[in-house]
């Protein structure tokens, strides 16, 4: 019995990408973007909006402001999210969330889909990215809808 047959017998899917040692979904960077959705599926903009506004999940509004009238306390140390979908493609947004250090090593933007190479991570967060692959796709889908710069 060959390897594929064993997998079929055991009911395992054979991944198209080689598995990564850090457990994250593999992705390919092309230029300043990640063209393909993480884990293969596009996200849901409504779920993405909820993540962006949640101070424990997305954390976005600690640093960013945006067209969210119900969010009373917003950040002021990163660009306003209004018009993000006009400035960047979904592929560009994906890389900027996954690991903005690839574009600017000095950036204050946390790398959202990274678990290795960080210093002094609290035990409860070790091995976990800030957002999962599906959550990042949700956020990308939502940010892409923010076409208008006005609030």
């Amino acid at each position: 019995m060959n390897f594929a047959a064993i997998c079929v017998t055991l009911g395992l899917a054979v991944a198209a990408w080689p598995a990564r040692a850090d457990g994250l979904a593999p992705y390919e960077i092309v230029g300043d973007a990640i063209p393909a959705p993480l884990a293969g599926a596009l996200g849901d903009a409504a779920r993405g909006r909820a993540i962006v506004l949640d101070r424990q999940t997305g954390l976005c509004l600690l640093c960013h402001s945006g067209p969210f009238p119900e969010a009373r306390f917003q950040g002021g140390l990163a660009p306003d999210l209004g018009g993000t979908g006009s400035r960047w493609s979904e592929s560009q947004l994906r890389l900027r969330i996954v690991d903005a250090r690839r574009l600017n090593p000095d950036t204050i933007m946390p790398p959202y889909y990274v678990v290795d190479g960080l210093t002094g991570v609290a035990k409860s967060y070790v091995g976990k990215p800030i957002l999962g692959a599906a959550e990042i796709e949700d956020v990308v889908a939502f940010l892409a809808t923010l076409k208008d710069k006005s609030k």
Partner: peptide, 18 residues
């Protein structure tokens, strides 16, 4: 000045730079 934690921030990024 050292970046720490899951958010990869340093004290300096907030208190010197921002």
């Amino acid at each position: 000045n050292e970046r720490r934690g899951q958010l990869n921030l340093s004290c300096a990024q907030c208190h010197d730079d921002n």
